[in-house]
Nucleic acid binder design. Sequence first.
DNA 1: CTTGTTTTGAAATTTCTGATACAGGTTTTC
DNA 2: GAAAACCTGTATCAGAAATTTCAAAACAAG
Lengths: 295, 295
Amino acid sequence: MNQSGMRHDRRLPPTAPPSLAERIRLEMESFTPSEKRAAHLLLSHYPFAGLDTVAEFASRAGISAPSALRFVTRLGFSGFPDFQKHLREELEAQLLSPLAKAGPADKSQGAPALSSFSEAVIGNLRATVENIAPAEFEAVVTLLSDPRRHIHFTGGRFTGALARYAESHFRIVRSNVDFIEGQPALWRDRMIEIGKKDVIVAFDIRRYQEDVTALCETAAKQGATIVLLTDPWLSPIARVARHVLPAHIVAPSNWDSSAGLLLLTEALVATVTKRLWETAKPRMEAVERLRSEKA
Amino acid sequence: MNQSGMRHDRRLPPTAPPSLAERIRLEMESFTPSEKRAAHLLLSHYPFAGLDTVAEFASRAGISAPSALRFVTRLGFSGFPDFQKHLREELEAQLLSPLAKAGPADKSQGAPALSSFSEAVIGNLRATVENIAPAEFEAVVTLLSDPRRHIHFTGGRFTGALARYAESHFRIVRSNVDFIEGQPALWRDRMIEIGKKDVIVAFDIRRYQEDVTALCETAAKQGATIVLLTDPWLSPIARVARHVLPAHIVAPSNWDSSAGLLLLTEALVATVTKRLWETAKPRMEAVERLRSEKA
DNA sequence: CTTGTTTTGAAATTTCTGATACAGGTTTTC
DNA sequence: GAAAACCTGTATCAGAAATTTCAAAACAAG
């Protein structure tokens, strides 16, 4: 496809794979809407999505079989079997060469913003994991796995969404879970029933929000256990928190990144779900059943 | 239409599935001469030899098609397509999680769980970025940077939190931003003022939620532009969406991971903020001012 | 050498997949 | 605003692939 392309012979690996995926990405703009659907499906599950039958492929992409056919024809294949053969061969070649695994670190893409941003976020995740004390993580898991505890999630302006995310999962895994809005007017009255059996999981990163701090301080005063997910500079809530899990948040953006907090949240959800599996499983099944009934 | 015949199981923890190759090696002794030929061919080019047609496979093994068929039947498959499907799935699972393959189910707790979980999430992020078409990302940025557009965020049970997260940032960067609850009762009346100038940014991953789909379909019918953030299997919303950004979501958990979606969201926020900086800066400063006044 | 059993492949059959023609609908262009 | 060009899905068909049938070949035991 590319003798017209740049001859910037950068000493490519012996197998300079003109991956079909790459070509599709480049030609993406010139595709019709249906073709784009097909392309997206294929790229997102590359190359396995293309190994099924045309009908299956088309249906998953949300298009008709003929459109799928036109898509592969447009890519230069003589038919669907030809297309599949190419995918298989490419896959085999790639699997046999261990270095192909490293991935195309091609900066030449049109969205350097996205790829450099993601590298920064990945760095944050690694740093976050490294700096978490295993015992602390473990302690939080144990705390959240105790069915007798009441768990309340809360957060600030931006982190509130993370608290909701956590709550929506834990609510299914176990009982006695809720979400508390940050504004004092909304939680003042609920505080009367917060006590030693309660756990507050608070999300708070810089530009620490006073109302969240106030909530935690009040709850702590009443004997609740506070778990804090925050940034490395530690929200003032840390002073009243029993457990603190800090996450790195600096990204090449005018905003902080919450990916590290989300990682911790999801890891907590995963681990607690595993630990409470005996009781969580029937609950999850029940939710599933309700879903399908409504459908 | 859906091969997920297993409605009961709930994406079990990553217990290392016994590779078919392994089983064949064990049962080798009990095979007939023809079956041994088939087995040897398959093992020598595992699993690609099995991805061709029966005829091809049989011919390469030096046996007849019926013998090849008997071979796969004997392995417990209902037919050749079934056999091939298994090979593909095994291959995909192995390729997508190079690390999950070694782990004989980490029943362990705390830190090991956290670090392996984070590696999986990092893999998701890389895969997500690689599979985003730069032009698509760019197009979405342009769309969201258009001050004349109204932007509405929405999402499902879990992804709603991400939509809120996005909304809370964009709300500051630009005007005409809001969040729409997924339940039809809550948005039905708002639909009358949705039109060509509106953009719906929908978050929806598997166990796709019908109310979100309905919302998008209604909005699309009225001329709104739909941007969809979903998983690689594509929510049905993709059918009415102008732009689709898929993120990888499979993690060693009973739940899917939304980290990829968050990454895309934050990257969009960062890029749009940069692009609208002239107008975004004073807005951000104003918010800051209000904050400190209240303090 | 005969007989009963197992293994095997050629050919017939059935199933399903890939391909095509055509028509309705949409967008573009003038 | 009308016409042309272009997409896209439905219906249909041709052909290939998988599967079954059945009889011949290989083998083992008597």
